[in-house]
Design a protein around this nucleic acid. Sequence first.
DNA 1: CTATTGAACGATAATAATTATCCTCCTGTC
DNA 2: GACAGGAGGATAATTATTATCGTTCAATAG
Lengths: 140, 140
Amino acid sequence: MDMFRKRCKQLGLACTHQRLIIYRALASSASHPTPEAIYDQVRHEIPSISLATVYKNIKTFTEAGLLREVSVLHDSLRLDANLGNHHHLVCTRCKAVIDIPEEKLDPIRLRGKLPDGFVADRFLVEILGLCAACAKGRTN
Amino acid sequence: MDMFRKRCKQLGLACTHQRLIIYRALASSASHPTPEAIYDQVRHEIPSISLATVYKNIKTFTEAGLLREVSVLHDSLRLDANLGNHHHLVCTRCKAVIDIPEEKLDPIRLRGKLPDGFVADRFLVEILGLCAACAKGRTN
DNA sequence: CTATTGAACGATAATAATTATCCTCCTGTC
DNA sequence: GACAGGAGGATAATTATTATCGTTCAATAG
Ligand SMILES: [Mn+2]
Ligand SMILES: [Mn+2]
Ligand SMILES: [Zn+2]
Ligand SMILES: [Zn+2]
């Protein structure tokens, strides 16, 4: 956890008490928590912390590469009337979603058994990257 | 598009003018639109339509299996401090996210070239299904 | 074709999630 | 220890989504 201090220095971020606790809460969790869940966790140690601080630091950490968002498209509901099996290209910058046929990938196959009693229904594959427009220039 | 009338009858849904136009907007779009985008599109034909109607019918269609949501976890931000390569099991009922090592799947590999000028960065795989608790009983 | 009726619609309020604002305070540096 | 700028806290504002409720319309029976 002293490694966190170093990373902050590298990144030019102040290593505040709040940041340390927030990061520790995240790093010690296996549940992929929401901002609210982190807030609830952190309040055990810093009862006076503001939810806005949690949000701000989540963003800061994510931009710094200390954290990842589990889903790129969580900001707004996106719908698909194409019920056939296919995958998606997702532009991480403009959030464009482009169909690609499933034959464009080697088949997705499990090796061995899943943990717990998890019952799998289907595989969802997103190829993250930049769409043509975003890959080129600034303006999209 | 007359097939839509049939599906509605099968499902016990009234085939309203609004539903027809909303569904047509979705079916004819390749962009995986947001509810707002559908609303804007539909308003060309039904200027008086309510945004709430669009939301309600999106939900109706999704529950009926006429539509799919592109991302299962769009409702709230979920964070991950595990930066190593791994995949996720996602419970579609309680939204639990569980890590699985990438060796649990055959490697994801592209066959041939991607369309457009899309520049891929990484593959994101989610195994959708039910977690142990949700697979068993009602209460979770 | 008309009457009937429950489902669906439109308007809008309410809730939830996230971001912005602004003033105060603390970390990092000298 | 003093200083400056970034960071935190409180809270307002914004955005996304859902709930409420009175009115209207699609489906069906007569
Ligand atoms: Mn699609
Ligand atoms: Mn993970
Ligand atoms: Zn793009
Ligand atoms: Zn579950």
